[in-house]
Design a protein around this nucleic acid. Sequence first.
DNA 1: ACTGCGATGTGT
DNA 2: CACATCGCAGTG
Length: 192
Amino acid sequence: MKLPRAFYARDTRTVARELLGKVLVHQDGGVRRAARIVETEAYHGPEDRASHARAGPTPRAAIMFGPPGFAYVYLIYGTSHCMNVVTGPEGFPSAVLLRAAEPVERCLHSTRGPGNLCRALGIRREHDNGRDLAGDDLFVEDAPPPPERILAAPRVNVHYAGEWAERPWRFALAGSPWVSKPAPIPPKRRGR
DNA sequence: ACTGCGATGTGT
DNA sequence: CACATCGCAGTG
């Protein structure tokens, strides 16, 4: 069964954690593709320097200010699409980036990493940005709470965000081989 | 482990 | 016009 809008209308970090183990489904031109979410990141509020909403409701980020339960899909580096789900109350800019998943049904490609995940499910900005997740084309299916432990770590590739880069708002299922970076990279040790 | 770069939208 | 919620190929 499809997650209701009320699921998304909560604190971003809660939604990010609870999305782990749920199944992202894309009806790609009549073909159903699905993957079990194993890694997410929370982008929370207008003060979050790592968030696309940091500059206010610009054309790209405006959807993050809208009601919860809609897809925010953007293009990065000219080549990769990334998908978020909008969370929280309308007017408070927040979203959860879907970073990695475990392939379940007819995936076209690796589902590890946010760009790869979109490619595997056929999710594209032109086609899916702004889509209502309460519809039948793109949604998340409920699933029992995952048996795996949940890890929290700093978000990936947001080094420019100062202290906000250190917040442990990246969540992953422990032990999943599909998580995009198996473990936070251990600092290099010399000698000892 | 580290380096470089694609191909394009986005905000300043 | 600098740079991005990445991914890949090349090198050591």
